[in-house]
């Protein structure tokens, strides 16, 4: 965490439960915040392929590379699939499954701060178990 980052409370942990997401707009940028089995991740809501609202896609698992005729279904809940052309992205890293080195979506750091007050007035939240805090470059 450098001093050049800004913090934005985007919701409460109770509001974004496991398997759920919240799409927020911060500084004019649409961002999806995901709860994957209790861990939070944030991705830019824009597919690098043709600009689709990526974070509206399905969140499921994927079939891992395998031998012909073999199916290895894994990573349930960690793979975000673009709602247009179906490209898969690892929600924990923002990297695509088809071309992880070249095709990736911007990811942002998310933390849980039980003591955090609402930092940004435009995102009033009810503080319950803790706040979900998004960290953006200033």
């Amino acid at each position: 965490m450098s001093a050049t980052m800004t913090k934005h409370v985007v919701g409460s942990t109770a509001e974004i439960g496991p398997g759920q997401r919240k799409i927020v707009e911060v500084n004019g940028i649409s961002i999806g915040v995901f709860n994957v089995n209790g861990a939070y991740y944030a991705l830019r809501n824009r597919c690098p392929h043709q600009g689709a609202p990526l974070c509206q896609g399905s969140l499921k698992g994927t079939a891992l590379p395998s031998l012909p005729g073999e199916y290895l279904w894994a990573r349930e809940g960690e793979i975000l699939r673009c709602p247009w052309h179906g490209w898969e992205f690892d929600v924990t890293t923002g990297r695509s499954v088809c071309s992880p080195q070249k095709v990736r979506v911007r990811s942002y750091e998310v933390t849980i701060d039980p003591r955090e007050d609402a930092v940004v007035e435009t995102f009033p939240v009810t503080i319950q178990a803790g706040n979900v805090v998004l960290h953006l470059p200033a």
């Binding site: 689709a52 609202p53 509206q56 896609g57 399905s58 699939r81 709602p83 247009w84 179906g86």
Partner: peptide, 8 residues
């Protein structure tokens, strides 16, 4: 097998 129409 994924989706036939844009989900949005």
């Amino acid at each position: 097998p994924v989706h036939g129409a844009r989900l949005d």
